Computed example of a mutant assay.
Amino acid sequence: MSLERPVTPNPYDLLPATASFSVTSADVTDGQPLKDDQVAALGNTSPQLSWSGAPEGTRSYVVTCFDPDAPTPSGFWHWVLVDLPAGCTSLDTGAGAEGGAGLPGGAFMCRNDGGPKAFMGAAPPEGDQVHRYYFVVHAVGEDSLGVDSDASAAVVSFNLAFKTLGRAIIYGTYQH
Rank of each mutant, 00 (worst) to 15 (best):
G99K: 08
D13C: 01
D92I: 07
P71E: 14
G99A: 06
D148Y: 05
A54K: 00
P47A: 03
V156T: 11
Y133Q: 00
T24Q: 11
P6L: 15
P116M: 13
Y133E: 02
L160R: 05
S74G: 04
F76H: 12
S46D: 12
C88I: 02
D13N: 05
S152Y: 08
H78F: 11
T89F: 08
T45V: 09
A161S: 15
M109Y: 11
P11E: 10
G166D: 06
L34Q: 04
N10M: 05
N159P: 02
C88N: 07
N112R: 02
S50V: 14
P124V: 03
F158Y: 12
S2H: 04
G115C: 10
V63M: 10
P47D: 06
P9M: 14
T64F: 07
T24N: 12
Y133I: 00
F119I: 01
A153G: 10
A151G: 09
G100R: 04
S46F: 13
E126A: 15
Q38K: 03
F119Q: 02
E56L: 09
A95W: 13
V137Y: 12
M120D: 14
A122W: 07
T72S: 15
N10T: 01
A151S: 13
F135P: 00
R5I: 04
G121V: 03
V156N: 09
A107E: 06
L14S: 08
V140I: 14
K163G: 04
A54I: 01
R59M: 15
G31F: 15
S60H: 10
R59Y: 12
A86N: 01
V39L: 11
G43L: 11
A17L: 12
L165N: 05
T8R: 11
T64C: 10
T29M: 13
L49R: 00
V39R: 10
D37W: 11
D36I: 01
T173C: 05
A168Y: 05
C110P: 04
R167S: 12
L42D: 08
M1F: 14
A139L: 12
P73F: 14
A168L: 07
A153Q: 03
L145C: 09
G102A: 07
H78S: 07
V23K: 01
S2C: 00
D113T: 02
G43E: 14
D143S: 09
T164H: 05
A122M: 04
S22M: 03
F119V: 01
E142S: 15
E126K: 14
F162Y: 14
A107F: 06
M1I: 10
P55M: 08
Y133V: 01
V130S: 03
S157T: 13
R59C: 10
